[in-house]
Amino acid sequence: MTAFDRTLTASADAPLLSVQDLTKRYGRRIGCERVSFDLWPGEVLGIVGESGSGKSTLLGCLAGHLAADEGQILYRGHDILAMSEPERRLLSRTEWAFVHQNPRDGLRMGVSAGGNVGERLMAIGARNYGAIRNAASDWLTKVEIDPGRIDDRPRAFSGGMQQRLQIARNLVTAPRLVFMDEPTGGLDVSVQARLLDLLRGLVRDMGLSVVIVTHDLAVARLLADRLMVMKDGRVIETGLTDQVLDDPQAAYTQLLVSSVLQV
């Protein structure tokens, strides 16, 4: 942690995350290839593209869930790929957060909602039960879950509630950088809309930097400041969200955008 605190002030005019030529292969198949981008503090970057284009692979490499084959990832100037595993895992539970598409992958289904939210606090040393419980209760309120359900298990929650609980569990330690993989994926349209609204508010209020993967261009339009379009593991277009969606340059992006508009 200390290594990061020292550079705390040096961040405003430098990228939070700086990615150079990141490549990940699965045997001979390409997962993602030579991806480069900068993410600035407070920015929401959307990664779009059809299924199999390498979005999840890229996100997995960024978050340290997958080992990249080549390239460099700098987080606030620190070389992530050169870090030891303990350092990286500490980063994952303090400065970073990861919201999975399936809440089951991001929650402990056998643990109460309060325990789920409190886990990250306890993982970084919180040892006062009352304080942990209060923080959990506050966060349930923030994600629009009745705090009266703090002792219920996630199993008893709807899909939308589970996803909001996963978000609370991730944000309770006030991370700077949040990775999201299709966070509205499996949800009904009306539930999606409410979740997007909530996410937008939290991102704004907490000044979060976000890398969000989605195949849904409507989600991208609502949340992302900037878009990266992927195809066959490569980035084929990048730009401000409105620019990419309203005036796509690459032929593939034009196809992607028009197919959405037709639906």
Partner: peptide, 8 residues
């Protein structure tokens, strides 16, 4: 942290 989740 998980041990304290159990106690929680």
């Amino acid at each position: 942290g998980l041990m304290h989740v159990k106690l929680y």
